[in-house]
Write a protein that binds this DNA or RNA. Structure first.
Lengths: 339, 339
DNA sequence: AAAGCTAATCTAAACGTTTCAATTTTGTCA
DNA sequence: TGACAAAATTGAAACGTTTAGATTAGCTTT
């Protein structure tokens, strides 16, 4: 910039003025400066700028697992609207581990991101503490964390699962296995609550033996499903609390020599783009990923634009049950064992 | 840092020395400084540091589509090893559009990333120019761009597709449809070359009508596949040049009221984690995503560490044909139309 | 005890911007 | 023409680090 100023024989202040359009400058100087910029090939140094202005025009995104299509769908739309607003995005994955999460957030904070969008892992008070100290706009997505007063966009998980289980009950299923997510996430808990609620509504007693924790991971879910499948009176249907886990469930079913939906019905949270071209065609709960991403990005941009602190806003969206062919009516134990 | 220096009554230089461990400092001062740091809750400002040192400890990652499982798998491992080395990652998507690509790279360059990992879109000379001017370590992944002399890690696409088509030919298929990726990417071209090579080896004449461009996108591939399926003498097998497109192909097959593999065989580039639990169980070419990610990260880290400019290194890995059940032997037109 | 070393510490100048306050230029009006 | 206001331009001080090079302190050596 000094070079530009020199070649155009003006002061750096004037160059800055034309580069940023922050002050009026005569057409003549503007011309000289623009020529100089073109001649030198000058590009403003965003680091120096950030140091002075205190804003990096970058926001940090912390999710559990970039390999999970749900997250990537959401990330894609967030990235899109953020980029349109001139913001870059730094992406970190926690692998569902609160320790890694703290480390990653620290990495982002070091680099002075202007804001944070987080799908929190775990529910201890560490995150709360870290965020309070960071003091930058934060929006929680997918999950909310106890005690953190921040903008958030989440799903009505309980309602969504309740509908899905309701559907299974309506099909005649009484023993419904449930592969649960981590119980220290709001999603894990909310979805489980939906399961319990649906059973209660239907007057079916809750059986602890039917719910197994899969930690939102395929591998854990595989073992969890196995435990369900070897039971003498195995469930006639299994619901999986997310997309990764349902793959594990399907593998367990295959490895036990069973077939879906003939021998056992399966349903899960999160939809797949390929769900209706492969068999069994899974009945799932589709999340409005587009809306989630847009709202999240919008919320943070809003906070960033107006530093006013209106009370945190929490946006709750609804899932949609996509009924396909992975669930069959169930008429009782005798027929089911024959299949 | 001045605050810390003040409370410990030492100079900022000494504080810097203990924070970075760059110079010996007596145990006494070190103690005082560490106490002061703890008391104040001081955290070093990475922006200021970057301004001075010229390094941001951040590398930019530019891919076509974060929604594509192949890319996310690779990104996940890159992120992992980069993070282990103290680097953060800024992620951008080009949506296969060279213009967006230029914009995104500019965004990253503005923020002074130390290095770039790119899966290039298009093959004009714009990218070459931009990278030359940027003058930072760059490694190309998945695709290489004509004229760019940079480290790269790619697949032997030609060989991989050749094997897959070979397999189809071995099954008796003579009319094999091919849904191609963009012809201005090295992957699109390389894979197509594999197709042609296999036909040539088998003495099957190349028929232009059987190859349709799907641009690596599901939607485009759907229409491309449709064109193939409405042909009076439609192909008995279709190969799709990537994962996104094969979904489009399957949808087209379904919408035409056909079944795979009964009416038509299907195979594609890129594997799916769920491929062997859903029907049809796709025969695919699995890419070594772990190795791709590790090599890419390693290459850039190496360049970053030793500024020496050894000639660009190009790592070529091999795909693996995963034979499943989406391809059937083909005995001739008469049997195939009956199915 | 003075000189000469070494090790520890400090001073101050960068890095490339932004921005406030001060200065110069231009224009208007009496 | 001079006075004054408005507009355009500039000087210089930040922002929070790092890092030469200067300085000081603490030893040894003769």
């Amino acid at each position: 910039m000094l070079d530009v100023a020199a070649t155009a024989s003006v002061s750096v202040a004037t160059v800055s003025a034309v580069v940023n359009g922050t002050a009026p400058v005569s057409p003549e100087l503007r011309g000289r400066i623009e020529d100089a910029i073109a001649a030198i090939g000058y590009k403003r140094n965003a680091i120096a700028r950030s140091l002075k202005t205190g804003a990096t025009k970058t926001i940090g995104l912390v999710i559990a697992d970039i390999t999970n299509p749900f997250f990537t769908d959401v990330v894609a739309v967030i990235q899109d609207v953020l980029h349109r607003a001139g913001y870059a995005m730094m992406l970190c994955c926690t692998d569902e581990d609160p320790e890694q999460q703290e480390e990653q957030i620290s990495l982002l904070l070091d680099r002075m991101v202007d804001g944070l969008i987080i799908a929190p892992a775990g529910d201890d008070h560490a995150l709360e503490r870290v965020l309070k100290r960071a003091g930058i706009p934060t929006v929680l997505i997918d999950r909310i964390n106890h005690g953190i007063a921040a903008d958030a966009v989440v799903l009505d998980n309980q309602r969504a699962v309740l509908d899905a289980i309701d559907y299974l009950v309506g099909l005649g299923h009484l023993r419904i296995g449930y592969i649960s997510g981590s119980h220290d996430t709001s999603t894990g808990l909310g979805r489980l609550a939906g399961y319990r609620g649906a059973l209660e509504n239907a007057g079916i007693p809750y059986d602890d033996a039917l719910v197994r924790i899969g930690n939102f991971r395929e591998k854990d879910a595989y073992h969890a499903a196995m435990q369900l499948l070897v039971m003498p009176d195995r469930p006639s249907a299994i619901f999986s609390a997310n997309n990764l886990m349902v793959i594990g469930v399907m593998k367990a079913i295959r490895d036990m020599g069973l077939r879906c939906p003939d021998d056992i019905s399966v349903s899960s949270f999160d939809d797949f783009p390929w769900a209706d071209v492969f068999q069994p065609s899974l009945t799932t709960i589709a999340q409005p990923v587009q809306a989630i991403g847009e709202h999240a990005a919008q919320l943070i941009l809003e906070r960033l634009a107006t530093r006013m602190d209106r009370p945190p806003r929490q946006i709750v969206l609804s899932g949609r049950l996509m009924i396909r062919s992975s669930c069959r009516p169930f008429y009782g134990a005798d027929r089911s064992t024959v299949a």
